[in-house]
Design a protein around this nucleic acid. Structure first.
Lengths: 112, 112
DNA sequence: TATCTATATAACCATTCTGTTATATACATT
DNA sequence: AATGTATATAACAGAATGGTTATATAGATA
């Protein structure tokens, strides 16, 4: 449990994972949308999501072309997530993320 | 704030810092007592304490030969600390720490 | 089946982190 | 002032971490 707890907090100990979790508090999202909002490469997002998933905080589902990631309700870390939300509420970057989120439409983002 | 939050969670993202915080939830402690309970070298403990202190979770006071470290009440991270406590409650290592804590008397520990 | 697209994984580099030993500093006592 | 003790800091090695580019995989469509 000590190791488990350590791993859990490691998830929250990264700026971009905090941003990802904050976005998933809004709605389920696919990889390319997250990459667009964070302005980080797709493989980076994928790896973060993998790690978050390993701790049981999120799950994924297939949705046509895309893979949706979403928060698991009632996870052990729910309490922490609440704190995260309130800690970050007034942050500049977080606010900018939420603005960019409005423009994050997968059908437009992922065509190359 | 994003960076601050990231730093805060980094504090909880280490096994030995979790053990230290859990012990400080019991009582104020000096460096050599913590080193004794965790069975880790003194410089390692000192550095952990320094980092925890930088985030405003703990403070220190001089006590004769020793430096006592103690949790700051009403810190922003209080909520998290509560979760930590409940997460770790039943952990083997944590329980063993609490047992060893009973034998941690600075006057006996630190004489070489 | 062949092709296209979103996502996952691999490999690499730079940075950060933790533990250790060795050493410096600061406080107490004589 | 001098000495002894607890703690802090420095320097180092090994492991882990995050970002990137390149490549593989899996699902959808034609």
């Amino acid at each position: 449990m000590l190791t488990t707890t350590e791993k859990l907090f490691k998830i929250f100990a990264d700026k971009n994972r905090l941003r990802i979790l904050n976005l998933l508090l809004q709605r389920k999202m696919c990889v390319c949308e997250l990459a667009f909002v964070l302005q980080v490469t797709q493989p980076s997002i994928s790896r973060h999501l993998k790690r978050i998933k390993e701790t049981g905080l999120i799950a994924d589902e297939q949705d046509g072309f895309w893979t949706n990631y979403f928060l698991i309700k009632n996870s052990k870390a729910g309490v922490i997530l609440k704190s995260v939300k309130s800690f970050l509420k007034n942050d500049k970057v977080i606010k900018a993320d939420l603005e960019r989120l409005k423009k994050a439409e997968r059908t437009k983002l992922c065509s190359k």
